[in-house]
């Protein structure tokens, strides 16, 4: 339903809300990309800046929630409009939490590279870089799917999520061999596993957002279904 509302103001208000969400999405993506960069550059100062900038995501979160409450009270939305506002409320939460996960990666930079600390080898860190790029792309696709309200793109996010599961398993296996080779790596191992968990959750939020797009479009709640079912459902519409 691309036709606008009779009350044009309502369209403008939803458009404004959507722009807030897209801004949040871009911010969450750049937070993780920069956190990864700070790790690559071994730059704790950059990491501190990233952590400070997380408050901007929190502000956008509050602003978007206020806007949603105001729109529900004023416009009493139904059908797709209602689904859209409810889903956007959830997307906002996912983006805010994705930002929290990016902050954890910035925290790794501080932990590893502040003066006096002994950093891990590049080999151990390589997985974090690879995974961060992968989940950034997932969230970028989710935001494209949101911007275009395109379920096919949402499907691509879910497919990437499936591959992510496989990647995580092989990363853990690889890291385990490092510990077996040299048990002194255990401290770094724990930090890196926590980082990987943060990236996994970041990807999970991207996948949740893809589910919210499908809910807006079809009314189907796919949060608790298997990925296979998710993709089938997209194909039906």
């Amino acid at each position: 339903m691309n036709e606008g509302h009779i009350v044009k103001r309502f369209d403008q208000e939803i458009e404004h809300l959507n722009s807030l969400i897209l801004e949040m999405g871009q911010l969450a993506i750049s937070q993780l990309a920069e956190a990864q960069e700070s790790l690559a550059n071994e730059d704790p100062e950059q990491a501190y800046n990233i952590i400070a900038r997380d408050s901007k995501l929190n502000d956008l979160d509050s602003q978007s929630n206020d806007e949603i409450i105001r729109l529900i009270a004023k416009r009493q939305p139904v059908a797709r409009d209602l689904r859209e506002l409810i889903a956007i409320g959830k997307i906002v939460s996912d983006l805010e939490r994705a930002g929290d996960e990016a902050r954890k990666i910035a925290g790794l930079t501080i932990r590893f590279f502040e003066p006096g600390k002994k950093p891990p080898s590049d080999e151990i860190l390589s997985d974090i870089h690879q995974l961060a790029e992968y989940v950034c792309k997932m969230l970028q696709l989710s935001m494209n799917s949101f911007g275009e309200q395109n379920m096919k793109i949402a499907g691509k996010v879910v497919k990437r999520g499936l591959k992510l599961d496989g990647q995580l398993q092989s990363i853990i296996r690889r890291l385990t061999t490092f510990i077996m080779e040299d048990p002194r790596n255990i401290g770094h191992f724990i930090d890196i596993v926590l980082g990987i968990r943060a990236l996994e959750r970041f990807g999970g939020h991207a996948k949740n957002i893809a589910g919210h797009i499908v809910f807006i479009q079809t009314g189907e709640d796919l949060r608790h279904v298997a990925d296979d079912e998710f993709l089938k459902s997209i194909g039906k519409h």
Binding site: D228, L231, K236
Partner: peptide, 13 residues
């Protein structure tokens, strides 16, 4: 996992 699930799904009438 069937990667062609989207294509295989029966459309809703």
């Amino acid at each position: 996992m069937n990667q062609t699930a989207i294509e295989d799904a029966k459309p809703i009438e």
